[in-house]
């Protein structure tokens, strides 16, 4: 081991201690979250959030699942899949065009999307409400899907432009020599070469759609079109005195996305680290 490596390791001690402290700060609430859900209401009321659950019961989960939770889950799934599909198709074509046209116009398009990164959805929710009502889409799942997808586009275009930059000019040339048109180049060269970027974009837009709250809150109303986040918000009233059930609903809303994370961990982490490195 060289001196420098040892030095770096020594530097990590205070940072490592801070990391451990932060780990505790993250882990304790998560422990409370899970431990609270596996006890009965009376046991939670008696023992408080930090105690080890005396009797193990999954009854709180049953209370949640017997209600409207499954419907909220299905709605969220529909919204998530639709958003990811729209974002992938549109962001791939936009990024492909930006990377391969290289005109002043395409640079402008890229700049528009870069500036779009800074548009907060909160600031434009009123006009979006106006647009959605004018389109007669108020209180439909489409009312959530369309704006959510639109707001995922800027970061997706940014990520895909980044990964399409890595394709060598020679590879395009050899395909062009074969007489391939732009669609075939996209399908046979660009898409396979940027599979990593595309899955990152898919994961991001899915995560954003799954966790989105403002658009469902403003743009839907009825129980039939309620998504998970809005359902959780509604549970504050419904399970006001049933904290194990309330937190069980929280856990149930995280489990699907956590399962997906276990499979798509690399895409998510690499994508985020890539944004920071650029």
């Amino acid at each position: 081991m060289s001196t420098s490596a040892r030095r770096r390791r020594r530097a990590n001690i205070p940072a490592g201690a801070a990391a451990f402290l932060w780990l505790v700060i993250v882990a304790v609430p998560l422990y409370i979250l899970v431990a609270s859900t596996v006890q009965s209401r009376s046991s939670y009321l008696e023992n408080g959030p930090l105690s080890l659950p005396g009797e193990f019961t999954l009854d709180s989960y049953r209370r949640v699942l017997e209600g409207d939770f499954p419907r909220y889950l299905l709605n969220t799934l529909i919204v998530t899949v639709a958003c990811a599909a729209i974002v992938i198709v549109l962001a791939v074509t936009v990024a492909y065009s930006i990377i391969r046209t290289r005109t002043r116009l395409s640079r402008r398009v890229f700049q528009i999307f870069l500036l779009g990164l800074a548009i907060p959805s909160q600031a434009v929710i009123i006009p979006i409400y106006l647009i959605i009502t004018e389109l007669q889409l108020y209180d439909t799942l489409l009312a959530i899907i369309l704006p959510t997808a639109a707001f995922s586009l800027p970061v997706s275009v940014l990520i895909l432009v980044g990964s399409m930059r890595d394709i060598e000019e020679e590879q395009y040339e050899s395909m062009a020599l074969d007489g391939a048109g732009p669609a075939r180049v996209l399908w046979q060269l660009v898409v396979p070469m940027t599979r990593g970027g595309i899955s990152t974009v898919g994961v991001f837009s899915a995560l954003g759609a799954w966790n989105g709250f403002l658009f469902p809150l403003i743009l839907t109303q009825s129980r039939e079109n309620r998504v998970l986040t809005l359902g959780l918000y509604d549970y504050i009233g419904e399970f006001r005195v049933d904290i194990p059930a309330l937190l069980a609903a929280v856990v149930l809303s995280i489990v699907p996305i956590f399962t997906a994370y276990l499979f798509a961990r690399r895409q998510l982490i690499n994508g985020l680290m890539g944004v920071g490195g650029r």
Binding site: I86, L90, A91, T93, V94, Y96, S97, I98, R100, T101, T103, L105, S106, V109, I112, F113, G116, I119, V124, I128, I131, L146, P147, A149, A150, F151, L153, P154, V157, Y172, M175, A176, G179, A180, G181, P182, R184, V185, L186
Partner: peptide
């Protein structure tokens, strides 16, 4: 010949402009 035109960006751009810009 293998290059796409700027037209490829139009659907995505319009969608974004309509709902965000």
């Amino acid at each position: 010949t293998g290059r796409p035109g700027i037209a490829w960006a139009v659907p995505g751009l319009l969608f974004f402009l309509f709902f965000a810009a």
